[in-house]
Design a protein around this nucleic acid. Structure first.
Lengths: 201, 201
DNA sequence: CCTCTATCTTGACAGTGTCAGGATAGATGG
DNA sequence: CCATCTATCCTGACACTGTCAAGATAGAGG
């Protein structure tokens, strides 16, 4: 009977079907709860319902899994920036600020991924997938700055550092004043600070 | 003979004398070489020449050691900012920028400590020593902003985020353009970016 | 139908943090 | 001067970790 087959399948199929994606999702949850430092590969495997050595075949070792997760994170990161830009006015300056807001927004929505991507030593940036994904995300910000009119490396560094600093401090819970802010007020404050980092054209 | 006694003492005294300080120093070296995630308490003990359980009596567990190290880090952090300020002009604005340069300077000089203080989950900020040390360092920056004339929380967040973002991205090696910069050019660029984060009084 | 290959499991190993109990040495009080 | 006391450090054990080797399973292709 089909019903029985399904139940068998649900219970314990030898081949998972999409273990790679399941492990990535489990790893993000693991990071969110325990942090990068207490990350356990065996615990991730248990979350996905497979044996402790199953991840090895898909990712090699723990660094391989975290590297793949970081690469996925940069894709999401770029997508978030694009989503923010789509809702903003189409002037270069507004678009750049929207990218900055997306930068911070991603960090607040996926803090585990953000910390992995920017604050961890357990990722291998010589990996092709991670390298190109990271370069795409950073290149986007750079091109946005150029569209505003600046070609100075100093201006890229300024807006990037401002967005990054805001993101990092906020998800660390260190900017305590924003607790009393509404979401709109917070966005307005972030936009003001980001705008200030641009050369005052 | 005194000489023999000294040699005996150098070889293997049962009581270390200043094991607490030795462990903190060894821990910073360990962090610098391996990173926070690969940090090993047993390896730190081996560096200090004691058994693997010796740190427990001084720090409780691994988190206790890293917490104490972070508290020490915030003292050094504040001292670095003061050192930068001492060499700068005595105007409020120059003093604040000097504090920001000290912020980045500390991160570049002691990256392991900086990452531990701002990017790790293995520190206990409910600890009294760490809490007060961190508050002292952050309170300093806040008071510097107020001296410039601003009382808006937004301005504190702006200059803090800018300094923090620059520090974090630089020690992560992500701002690649600075590789071609001389030290003076780098300081000038940082000062320009930091100055931009202030309200344009 | 039979092999081939990708996928997953089991079992083992060295290394980790932490706890319990014992050894040592400097300090304290008689 | 000596006995005890306490802080300091060591040894041994436990559960847990990541990784490797070898075997089991199932789907795919000839």
């Amino acid at each position: 009977m089909a019903r029985y087959d399904v139940q068998m399948t649900m219970e314990k199929p030898y081949h998972h079907g999409d273990l790679r994606s399941a492990l990535l999702a489990a790893a993000e949850s693991e990071l969110l709860e325990k942090g990068v430092e207490a990350f356990s590969l065996r615990s991730v495997a248990k979350r996905a319902g497979v044996s402790h050595a199953a991840p090895a075949h898909h990712f090699g070792d723990a660094t391989g899994l975290l590297t793949a997760l970081a690469a996925y994170g940069f894709q999401e990161f770029l997508a978030t920036q694009h989503a923010f830009e789509a809702r903003a006015p189409q002037t270069p300056r507004d678009q750049l600020i929207a990218a900055g807001l997306g930068y911070v927004g991603f960090a607040r929505t996926r803090p585990a991924l953000f910390k992995l991507m920017f604050g961890s030593q357990r990722t291998d940036y010589s990996d092709a997938a991670l390298g190109s994904a990271a370069e795409a995300a950073i290149g986007h910000l750079t091109s946005q700055v150029k569209l505003v009119g600046s070609v100075a490396a100093q201006d890229v560094a300024a807006v990037w550092a401002t967005a990054h600093g805001l993101a990092d401090l906020i998800i660390a819970g260190r900017i305590s004043v924003i607790r009393d802010f509404s979401e709109d007020d917070l966005q307005a404050m972030l936009a003001t600070i980001l705008a200030r980092s641009l050369p005052g054209v």
